[in-house]
Structure formats: structure tokens, C-alpha cells
Amino acid sequence: MEDRRLRSSFGAAATAYAEHRPDYAPAAVRWALESAPGPRVLDLGAGTGKLSATLVELGADVVAVEPDPAMLTELRRALPAVRALPGSAESIPLPDASLDAVLAGNALHWFDMTVAGEEIARILAPGGILAGLWNVMDDRIDWVSALERVSGSAAIGPRDTLSSWRAATADLLVASTGLDGRFGASEQVEFPHGQRRTADSLVATLATRAGMLVMAEEERDAALGRIRAFLRTRPETAQGEFTLPMLTGVLRVQRR
């Protein structure tokens, strides 16, 4: 029930999500797709189209599927040329063997892979790629590590930092990779990335995390106030724009 509440929280912040969430490192997306048998790519759980935009820039033939109407509206507004459909990972409105790759940006952990794994296997052509991508903060950097401690897990969770994303995501494909041997072994790789932020826009970014969105307003305001106060005390973040050090992590498997 709590997972469902978190998963369904983003629509209320769709506009802020579109404005503040980062895109994905092009090198990471290229690596995810490098063994795909063709250009037909599904952005599954596409949100407001952050990953779809990178795929379009790389020349992929993109279709997007997103369950939340508000998020889907933002995606269609930002990327009117992309075919964007209502649907979910557990019920994908596309024909059998019609895709060369299925990518999910900061979304794979919300899927019920016992059901979604079957659906993804159904729509992928032989040799097709399934990959999850996550933008994670580089907590090897001192101030980022300190920010994580101040923010708490509602704002910066186990899939949101370099030190923990591999362990937090490694088992997400267990159900799909066990489907009658239809997928090969999984691979995990990280690629350097970054996002230009100010203290205020980083606070706004963290406010779009699911754990923050489901908080009571008073509790959320207090948490965001602590984060804002911390950022204004750090020399790295107190004076105008800075680059938030990130990586895009990729978890990839290939259909046999």
C-alpha cells in the first residue's frame, strides 16, 4: 500500500518534476542501447519525458508509456512529436516483439517485475535490451555526503547516491531474468553526469521525490527548510549556480 502511495504521488507535482528533474547522461543512454538490434525504443514509466528527450536527441525511434495523466500531459507538451500512450509496465499497450529496447528512467523500482517482466519479454524482439537508468548523487564528494545526512531518506534515498544504488537496484531484475532463461546476466555501469542548480532549485528538485511528496505539509516544509539552510552555509552551494555532481547508473540485460 505504501509503495502504491509513493508510486502514484508524482502527478501532483508534474510541472515541478518537468522543470527540476535532471536529464540523463547521453553516454549512459548510448551504452544502454549499444547491443540493441534496432532503433525502436520504449521509454517505460516515462514521466514527463526526461529520458525520452535524450533518446530523441540520440536518434532513437521512441514511443513512451506513462500511467499518470498529469505526467503524460507534461510529456506531450514537451515532446509533441513523440508517440506517448497511457499504460503501465504491467500492461503495455504495444504488440508482441515490436521493440528493440525498453528503457526506464528512475522508474524500474516502481514496477511489479513479477508481472512487468512477462510484459517486457513479450514486447521485446529477440536480442532486445531492457535497461533501468538512475541519476544518483556522487556522495564521494564531501558536501554531497553531508547533504544526504541533513536531507534524510525521504529526499535522498538508497537509490539516489553512488554508494548505495548498485545494491539497491541489483535485485530489481531477478523476476525478469528468471523467466525461462529469456534474459542474460545483468550488468551495472555508471557514467559521469551533472546538473546546474542553485540552492533554491536544488531544494525544489528534492521536493519532487516521492518520499517528500507524501509527507504532511508541515513536516515537508520543515525538512526543506533544513536542506535550504544547509545549502546556504556551504561555500560550494551558497553563491549562485553550481554543478550538482551526479552519475547516471545503468542496469542492463539482453533478451535471448
Rank of each mutant, 00 (worst) to 15 (best):
G127Q: 02
S9K: 12
A167Y: 12
L51P: 01
V144E: 03
M215A: 09
T243F: 09
S145H: 15
V82F: 08
A185T: 11
P69D: 10
A53H: 07
A216S: 13
A27L: 11
L124G: 07
L179M: 09
S88K: 01
R196M: 10
L79M: 09
H193R: 05
V41S: 03
G157M: 03
D43V: 06
S88M: 02
A18I: 05
L44V: 01
Q188H: 15
Y24K: 00
E57C: 08
W143Q: 05
R228P: 04
V102S: 00
T169P: 00
L251F: 08
E34N: 09
L124T: 03
V250F: 03
A155I: 04
E218G: 12
L33G: 06
G178Q: 10
S91I: 06
P93G: 06
A64K: 01
F242E: 06
V65E: 05
A14P: 02
F10G: 05
L33Y: 07
A222W: 14
A97V: 08
A175C: 11
S52L: 01
A25H: 02
V203C: 06
T15E: 15
A53K: 09
P26D: 00
N106G: 15
G194A: 13
Q239Y: 14
S176T: 15
P26I: 02
P39W: 09
E118M: 11
D180L: 08
E119F: 03
G211W: 07
G194I: 03
A199Y: 05
A229V: 12
A97L: 11
A25N: 00
F230S: 06
